[in-house]
């Protein structure tokens, strides 16, 4: 009982805090999040851990984008890694072969990835479920095969010498410095995903996911929504790819975009919670950290990830996000049943 009351008080306190922050300004919680995340490179003493923080930010961008098209719009795309690879390689080619700065190559990479996203999105007009999954799997795999067979893109040797971004004379050439580039972009990405998903557009996505026919009858432009979902997620993948390409050591290899990455990405979204607004973030953090911890046992990683995916789908279809939601709802329910109101400020009597 004491534990329950404590957890309930914690939930209430958090919500009260958020409400107060929002009352100051709608963007205040994001500012607080930024300030909390800002000193991270100084807390983590090990440079490798800072690299990991950077990588987690890139992965969050990628999985939040994937969750929009997969979790919210219900389109099963498997080959998202292909879009990520396109973003990364475009940025690399633009900056190395055409001598552009990061600030030019990033928009171009996002643009090209958006175009590729449109190409992936077109089949979704006519195909559903497994068909779409296999076509996107094939597209993603074709991108990798194409890269590893093309000399211009470095083939299997990889693409190296991608310069670090710079503003004037300031170069983002260490992980500590790069963190301040990738973390704000990540926060912006999460912020935009919240804004999109809680808008009319996001509700349209969910309508398309639940029943395309009913959605069309209710006046939702099904094709348009599918396309926009694919474009948004491609945009996220483009940002993630360009940021990954320019991160030191500035080296890309087609082996970074294989089926293992597809599975990790899938696991992030599934474990975090398909269609949960925090799903991509939770999943990216947990999976990246677990992947890193289990690096010594990489022979078993596919077995581990595959089984976790299967078990999550079987026993926890809403992922960790769903479990947290249910936990909060249960606590609320118990409180109401015991006659304790859950209005802010009135639970002190318990």
């Amino acid at each position: 009982m004491a534990e329950q009351a404590a957890s309930l008080r914690f939930i209430d306190a958090t919500e009260r805090g958020l409400t107060r922050l929002r009352a100051v300004h709608p963007l205040a919680p994001w500012l607080v999040a930024f300030l909390l995340l800002a000193p991270l490179p100084w807390v983590l003493l090990n440079t490798y851990h800072v690299f990991l923080a950077n990588f987690i930010c890139v992965m969050i961008l990628l999985s939040v984008g994937l969750n929009i098209v997969k979790g919210f719009c219900g389109q099963v795309t498997v080959g998202h890694v292909g879009l990520y690879a396109i973003g990364a390689y475009t940025a690399a080619v633009m900056s190395v072969n055409f001598g552009m700065t990061f600030w030019m190559s990033l928009p171009i990479a996002v643009m090209v990835t958006l175009l590729a996203g449109a190409v992936v999105g077109i089949p979704s007009f006519r195909l559903e479920g497994a068909y779409l999954a296999l076509v996107t799997l094939g597209l993603g795999e074709s991108v990798r095969i194409f890269i590893s067979a093309t000399e211009y893109l470095g083939a299997t040797n990889g693409f190296s010498g991608i310069p670090a971004p710079r503003i004037g004379d300031f170069r983002f050439d260490t992980y500590q410095k790069y963190y301040y580039l990738v973390m704000p972009v990540m926060l912006l990405g999460v912020f935009f995903s919240f804004r999109i998903l809680r808008s009319r557009l996001g509700r349209g996505f969910m309508a398309v996911r639940e029943d395309p026919v009913a959605a069309a009858a209710a006046g939702v432009n099904v094709r348009g929504h599918k396309m926009i979902a694919f474009l948004i997620s491609a945009g996220y993948a483009g940002f993630a790819g360009a940021l990954y390409a320019h991160m030191i050591p500035g080296y890309l290899n087609p082996r970074n975009f294989t089926v293992i990455e597809m599975v990790t990405l899938l696991l992030m979204v599934v474990l975090g919670g398909l269609g949960h607004i925090w799903g991509g973030v939770i999943g990216a953090i947990i999976v990246t950290i677990v992947y890193d911890i289990t690096k010594d046992y990489y022979h078993y990683s596919l077995l581990l990830f595959g089984s976790v995916i299967v078990l999550t789908v079987l026993f926890m279809p809403k992922g960790i996000g769903g479990i947290i939601d249910r936990f909060i709802a249960t606590r609320r329910f118990i409180a109401i049943r015991e006659g304790r109101a859950t209005r802010p400020g009135s639970d002190d009597a318990a």
Partner: peptide, 20 residues
């Protein structure tokens, strides 16, 4: 909607079997 679960489950099973 459960169909998506099946696709994801099959995909996970495929990599797990490959690892086995």
């Amino acid at each position: 909607v459960a169909g998506m679960g099946m696709i994801i489950c099959g995909f996970g099973m495929s990599v797990a079997l490959q690892n086995v």
